[in-house]
């Protein structure tokens, strides 16, 4: 199979520089509002600064894949004398916690690197250089399975929660109502 070049984006997080201001959460929720920048709500943000102030823990975490089930990860990491629980560092929207879920619908949120912008808004708004955007080219296999879009992810999680039949029935009922 032919190899093609692909841009890989990532954000490097220097947690030691974080002053815990949460501007990243604000910028993220503003960017993803509809219309863009019309509202602010850190609870809708796809980045969250996990904070235990007196324990000196300020840890920006990005929303990753949706996990339909709880994992068994309840381990504790001690790094440089600070105690982090594994759950606190995890990027997944999962059934065991409220993190990275739309507050209204409970649907999972995922970081999309602010598609269309020069760099993610959280990076632009972090004036302390905690978040550093990196882009590099990588060779990958040509045929890659299409990544599911936001709607697919949403429907998938609804299906996992309520069953496919119930989701289809509801959509059918809603469409009849017009």
């Amino acid at each position: 199979m032919a190899k093609i070049k692909k841009k890989v984006k990532r954000i490097k997080i220097d947690a030691d520089k974080c002053n815990g201001c949460r501007s990243c959460e604000i910028a993220c929720s503003a960017f993803h509002a509809t219309p863009k920048y019309s509202s602010i709500n850190p609870a809708r943000s796809r980045i969250r600064v996990i904070t235990h102030r007196l324990k000196d823990i300020w840890l920006p975490v990005f929303a990753g894949e949706y996990a339909p089930a709880e994992c068994s990860g309840r381990d504790v990491y001690i790094i440089d004398g600070k105690e982090y629980d594994e759950c606190g560092m995890c990027r997944a929207a999962c059934p065991s916690r409220d993190l990275f879920k739309e507050p209204d619908s409970g649907l999972p949120l995922k970081c999309d690197m602010c598609e269309g912008e020069e760099k993610p808004l959280c990076v632009t708004w972090c004036l302390n250089d905690v978040l550093v955007f990196e882009e590099r080219e990588e060779e990958v296999e040509e045929e890659e399975a299409a990544k599911p879009g936001e709607l697919d992810l949403g429907i998938e999680s609804l299906t996992n929660r309520f069953g496919l039949q119930k989701v289809m029935d509801t959509v059918a009922r809603m469409s009849r109502k017009g």
Binding site: A30, A33, K36, Y37, S39, A43
Partner: peptide
């Protein structure tokens, strides 16, 4: 966990660029 709304959000963000 509710929204705070901006009347002219895009314009607000433009002004913030200058301040930043």
């Amino acid at each position: 966990t509710k929204d705070v709304f901006l009347a002219r959000g895009a314009e607000f963000m433009e002004h913030m660029k200058g301040i930043t």
